[in-house]
C-alpha cells in the first residue's frame, strides 16, 4: 500500500509516522508538502500529530486552509482513506470531515502518558480486527484532546457505531477515572458515516517499535492494512 503523510509547518510526528509505516510495516510512503496539490496516487492519507501553524488561534484551525487540504477533502469525499492522529484528528474535525471537536483537557494541562483504550466495535477498517476484550496501551500527548459534540451528534455517532476507541482502565472498563481529558463518554477516536475517515487522539505510531517495549499500536495499523489489502 502507498501512504501519503502530510507535512504542515509545525507537524512534528510526521517522521515517526513515516518510520513506522515504512521501516516497521514495510509500506511505501511519500511525504506530502502542505503547499502541494499532488497526492501522488496514494492509497491512504495520514495527517500526523504536531502543532500545525503553531496551533495558534485554535488547534487545527489554520491547517484546514492549507492548499493540500482541498485535495484531502476531495479524496475523502470520493471514499479515500484518511487517518488523522492527534493534531491530525483536530484538523479533520476543523475541516468537518469528522463530527465533533476537540477542546482543552478538563485539567487545562497538557498530558503525555501511556493510556489504555479499547475498540468500541469491529465495523470500521481501523478497528475491525481488534478483539473487543483486547485492551491496548497507546500513548497520548495533547493539551486539547477532550472530544466534544452536542447530545444529538453523540447519539448519532454512537448509534451508527462511529466511535472507534474509548479510554478505559487496565481491565478494559470505561470509567470516569480512566478518562484522561474529559472526553464525552471516554471517546478516543471517531470515524465518519462512510467509515473511510478516521481520527484518534492516541498515537499508535508511538507504540509500534519493539525497541521501545510496546507494540500495541501495530494492531491498529494491521487492522487497516488487512482491510485495505482485502479490498485491493
Amino acid at each position: 500500500m502507498k501512504f501519503g503523510v502530510v507535512v504542515f509547518p509545525g507537524s512534528n510526528c510526521d517522521e515517526d509516522m513515516v518510520y513506522v509505516l515504512k521501516n516497521i510495516l514495510g509500506q511505501q510512503v511519500v511525504k506530502l508538502w502542505h503547499k502541494d496539490h499532488n497526492l501522488q496516487g496514494v492509497d491512504m492519507i495520514v495527517l500526523p500529530g504536531g502543532f500545525s501553524y503553531g496551533d495558534y488561534l485554535r488547534s487545527g484551525a489554520i491547517a484546514k486552509f492549507s492548499p493540500i487540504m482541498n485535495e484531502v477533502t476531495e479524496f475523502a469525499k470520493k471514499g479515500g482513506y484518511v487517518l488523522g492522529v492527534c493534531n491530525g484528528f483536530q484538523i479533520l474535525c476543523e475541516a468537518q470531515l469528522l463530527p465533533g471537536t476537540l477542546i482543552h483537557n478538563t485539567s487545562h494541562r497538557f498530558i503525555c502518558k501511556n493510556q489504555f483504550i479499547v475498540a468500541d466495535n469491529n465495523v470500521s477498517p481501523i478497528n475491525a480486527s481488534i478483539p473487543l476484550d483486547r485492551v491496548l496501551n497507546i500513548p497520548i500527548a495533547h493539551g486539547e484532546g477532550c472530544y466534544y459534540a452536542d447530545v444529538e451528534t453523540i447519539k448519532e455517532i454512537e448509534d451508527n457505531a462511529q466511535v472507534l476507541f474509548r479510554y478505559c482502565n487496565p481491565e478494559g472498563h470505561i470509567t470516569e477515572d480512566a478518562n484522561p481529558n474529559g472526553s464525552v463518554n471516554n471517546i478516543a477516536g471517531v470515524t465518519n458515516i462512510h467509515r473511510n475517515v478516521f481520527g484518534m487522539m492516541p498515537h499508535p505510531e508511538r507504540a509500534a517499535d519493539e525497541e521501545l517495549g510496546n507494540t500495541d499500536g501495530r494492531l491498529i495499523f494491521e487492522s487497516l492494512l488487512n482491510h485495505m489489502m482485502a479490498n485491493v
Binding site: 512534528n12 513506522v20 498530558i111 501511556n114 500513548p139 505510531e205 508511538r206 521501545l212 517495549g213
Partner: peptide, 17 residues
C-alpha cells in the same frame, strides 16, 4: 513530567522500561 511530551520522536526507550 506528564506535562512534557516525552515520546515524540519515538526514541525514548525509558518510557516502558
Amino acid at each position: 513530567y506528564e506535562q512534557y511530551d516525552s515520546m515524540v520522536g519515538t526514541v525514548n526507550m525509558s518510557t516502558n522500561r
